[in-house]
Structure formats: C-alpha cells, structure tokens
Design a protein around this nucleic acid. Structure first.
Length: 195
DNA sequence: GGTAGGATGGGCT
DNA sequence: GCCCATCCTACCC
C-alpha cells in the first residue's frame, strides 16, 4: 500500500499551525477510499474570529475544545460537510480544515459518490468535495482518527515537501491571517484549474 | 476565458 | 431573518 502507520495522538497535541503544516503529505483513509492531504487551513483559539470556537464552547463546538486527534465535522451552506482535525491539548480550542486531497485509492468509488464526472484533479479539490468523495458525514463528528474507521496515516514516501502560505479561502472575519498551507506546485489544490 | 446566482439547512442575533 | 470555513450551472465575453 501507499501509506504507513496511523498518526499517534501526540502528532495532534501541538500548536494548530504546526499540525496544519505537518498534515501536508499525510493520508486520509475512509473505507476503500483514500487521499493525500495537499491543502489545509488552521483555525485557532483566541484572536481568530473566523474560527467556530471564537464564540466559546457550546454543543456545536464541543469537539474543538476536546482532546486532539478527533474529527470535527459540520454542515456548511445546508449541503456540504467539512472535515477538520482537532489539534492542541485537551481543553484548548484549535482545529485544521482539510481543504483538498490527491486521490490515491478507491477512485472509481469516489467518482460514483460525486454527482458529476470530474477529472481526477477535481475529484477532491475542495472541502465539500473531499468529504462527499470519501463518504465522510456528520455521523463521524467527534470520531477518534487515531483509531478508525476514519484514520490519518503516514505516507510511505516521505519526500521533502515545499509549503506555500496564503490567507484562508471563503471567510470575511480575520481574512488577512496567513493560515492556509498548500503543497507547493501540487495539481490537486482547491479552485479552478489555471492554464 | 470570466462571473453571477441559486440550492439548502443549521446556528445565531 | 441573516450569515455562513461551498459547489455547480448558466450565461457572457
């Protein structure tokens, strides 16, 4: 297979920015489908007004304040679900939005789950697309990603990864903060194809 | 090549 | 009632 061990909880028990950068190149696995993480965004505690945790802990944001290495999954625009991985130590808010994957397993199944017939580059190149393609729903909100069935694994080919840093996509509050991280030059990042 | 608008439902004021 | 951490289609160069 193209991937290795599950990431341990200690991987996630660091600052949100550290986790967001370190997740690039790791592999999200759900059932027969899997993809390499090529784009992430950090949502911090404290000054970050774009984060769902900014208005405090409640029923919705409880998972973000909980122990690291769990999935925070929510419905956006009434139609799509977004996958986040919780960082920071237990009791501190912080999570990483997974924004794009490079498909590496179960491509036919991923295509069947998407309504359209996208090219490989566009199969999971957005936060709403990748959850649909991998069959990830709110039923997995709060799930422990160090145990499964939704897991994140080490890639076996751990080449040096170039990281580009930009502002986050699709937000208005705290929009200037450089908290989006993309694998340099990767064709599978979100947005329309250029060229 | 580009942009505008609609779908759709939960959370918050 | 308004605001979303989105995506797709239609339409216009």
């Amino acid at each position: 297979m193209l991937w290795g061990c599950k990431l341990p909880r200690s991987f996630y028990a660091r600052s949100t920015v550290e986790v967001a950068r370190a997740l690039l190149g790791k592999v999200v696995v759900h059932g027969a489908t899997a993809g390499i993480i090529v784009e992430t965004e950090a949502y911090l505690g404290g000054e970050d007004l774009a984060a769902h945790s900014a208005r405090g802990q409640n029923e919705r944001t409880r998972v973000i304040f909980g122990p690291p290495g769990h999935a925070y999954i929510y419905l956006i625009y009434g139609m799509y679900e977004c996958l986040n991985l919780v960082a920071e130590r237990d009791g501190r808010p912080g999570c990483v939005l997974i924004r794009a994957l490079e498909p590496v397993a179960g491509v036919a199944l991923m295509r069947a789950r998407r309504g359209t017939r996208p090219k490989l580059e566009q199969l999971a190149n957005g936060p709403g697309k990748l959850t649909l393609a991998l069959g990830i729903t709110r039923a997995l909100n709060g799930a422990d990603v160090t145990r499964g069935p939704l897991v994140v694994r080490e890639a076996t080919c751990a080449d040096e990864i170039g990281i580009e840093v930009t502002p986050r996509i699709g937000i208005t509050r705290s929009a200037e903060l450089p908290l989006r991280f993309v694998m340099a030059g990767n064709r599978f990042v979100s947005g329309r194809r250029r060229r």
